[in-house]
Design a protein around this nucleic acid. Sequence first.
DNA 1: CAAATTTCAGGCCAACTGAAATTT
DNA 2: CAAATTTCAGTTGGCCTGAAATTT
Lengths: 152, 152
Amino acid sequence: VDTESGLPDQMLRFSSFLMLQLVKESRRIAGELGDEDLRATHLTVLTCLEQFGAASQKEISDRLRIDASDLVSLLDDLERRGLATRRRDEQDRRRYQVDVTPAGRKALRRRLAMAERLNDVLLAPLDAAERTQLHELLTRVHGYHEARRTTG
Amino acid sequence: VDTESGLPDQMLRFSSFLMLQLVKESRRIAGELGDEDLRATHLTVLTCLEQFGAASQKEISDRLRIDASDLVSLLDDLERRGLATRRRDEQDRRRYQVDVTPAGRKALRRRLAMAERLNDVLLAPLDAAERTQLHELLTRVHGYHEARRTTG
DNA sequence: CAAATTTCAGGCCAACTGAAATTT
DNA sequence: CAAATTTCAGTTGGCCTGAAATTT
């Protein structure tokens, strides 16, 4: 009886299940890399602000699919550490203008480099061509679902 | 300014990030397919019992990387629905022998078919060859990390 | 007035820690 | 006695609902 080794074959048949396992593995690797202070969500918010510029919480929430109510404490974190700022939008005082600070951009650089290392560790068994191939396939799938989201 | 469309490019560069997004997308699809009653974790436990036979909670926990304390309530669920059973291991009364029931196997079939549909929806934009390619790459990466786990 | 934005209170699940109880 | 197994209590993060406060 093959009582050693891994997960059930019936689950491993599903790419979606494999991706779930690899996401978990990524979290383990992130833990080993000492990745505590800034979480992936913080990082995503900062990259969003850097790439698309200052935005309201609603805009960030919609774009990143982060729940608006969860975004509150995330931005509290970032503000407390001086990595992002909230100021009232004077054209529409219901909104904040959220922006990234210079310190935020710096922290972003550092953490993106760490993400790069994580990705390297995760994809260690693949050569460059295979990584590209994997990334291309994942991008196609993701793009397809993103398109469905906006167009219906 | 490209103020429409999706996630920040700096994050989309990482296959690990794309996989996280696709896992989330899978959960959304599962929700749409009316996938409430039996969660992925329940399913994984049942397939584990079916493939490897009755086992102690520790064995299940180790194999599936589900936390032993979380497994308690999972098995409570399965037992309550008559899908699995716990009986004391009389050779070592610290342990239970956990096993899947006929009803559990039946529920398993039904839910695996649903997982198949989920996978189809998720990978809709890929043709058969591309799905195989993706699955093969994911399997290689997963196998690599699983091997590292056991051998050090 | 209704609608939008932010915020809070609270729910759930998954991952974890620490400690108890029982048995070896 | 120490170690293993199961269980419970409690924390955290991510995702969710519902409702409040403010502003449009």
